[in-house]
């Protein structure tokens, strides 16, 4: 066990044993036939207030997008963030489900998203006599290409550009905040550790260093769990 993981064990082991026992007992008692939904788990474990729980459960029970709209959202999400050599696609990360939830959570997104999806279908019917989801991949990309670049899009594409920018924002947020996306971006934190400064090779890469005063006065990693005496 290296220093960092032993510290992790220490930090987690420091929770009072009563709390841990309590948590184990609850797991034994529950053992439900079907696991609770992620939202229900969130509501049960995060100190949500009764009004927050009520709200979440109502949102979860409601369905905003039609099945046709959900299909289109999935196609667009995967055009924006496809699978590549590093990670899976937006639909692998369940981005359409996230978008379904977030427009109910923040209803100001509802009309722009529904309206944008309909704008897209209208545009595709005009060009190809088919809804977006029924078009060929090449046809879909032709329309996307016209709305994906705000600075060079033709003025008559303004509505499509506004919708696609929003869809791109929601897709990127939904993907990179997912388990797949956080691993993809390479975020290393959210875990107990001992910060001991910027790694040596990174300091070297950028030509910076800690001066003697900083090294002298900053906390030493090996002192992490020693009780400090004030003087």
């Amino acid at each position: 066990m290296d220093r960092r993981s032993s510290l992790k064990a220490l930090a987690l082991g420091s929770l009072s044993s009563g709390v841990l026992l309590d948590a184990c007992k609850q797991e034994e008692e529950k053992a439900p036939a079907s696991p609770p939904s992620p939202i229900a788990q969130w509501d049960a474990s995060s100190g949500r207030l009764p009004e927050e729980v009520d709200r979440d459960q109502k949102l979860e029970a409601d369905q905003f997008f039609t099945s046709h709209e959900m299909v289109t959202l999935g196609l667009l999400a995967d055009i924006i963030i496809p699978a590549d050599s590093v990670s899976g696609s937006a639909t692998d990360a369940k981005v359409p489900d996230f978008i379904e939830f977030i427009v109910k959570d923040q209803p100001r997104h509802k009309t722009p998203m529904r309206g944008g999806l309909n704008w897209l279908d209208n545009e595709c019917r005009r060009r190809f006599d088919n809804a977006f989801s029924a078009c060929t991949h090449a046809q879909q990309i032709e329309v996307v290409e016209d709305i994906a670049w705000p600075s060079k899009a033709r003025p008559e594409m303004a509505q499509g550009v506004a919708f696609f920018s929003m869809m791109r924002n929601l897709t990127a947020t939904g993907f990179f905040s997912s388990k797949i996306g956080i691993a993809d971006i390479g975020y290393q934190g959210n875990t107990p550790n001992v910060w001991d400064g910027v790694p040596e090779d990174v300091l070297k890469q950028y030509g910076v260093s800690y001066d003697a005063k900083t090294l002298e006065e900053c906390v030493k990693a090996e002192d992490h769990d020693k009780i400090f005496t004030f003087s």
Binding site: W149, N169, S177, Y187, Q188
Partner: peptide, 13 residues
């Protein structure tokens, strides 16, 4: 390098 959450990647253009 923060943990990505809601709002991450917004306005990439």
């Amino acid at each position: 390098m923060d943990m990505p959450g809601y709002g991450f990647g917004w306005g990439i253009e």
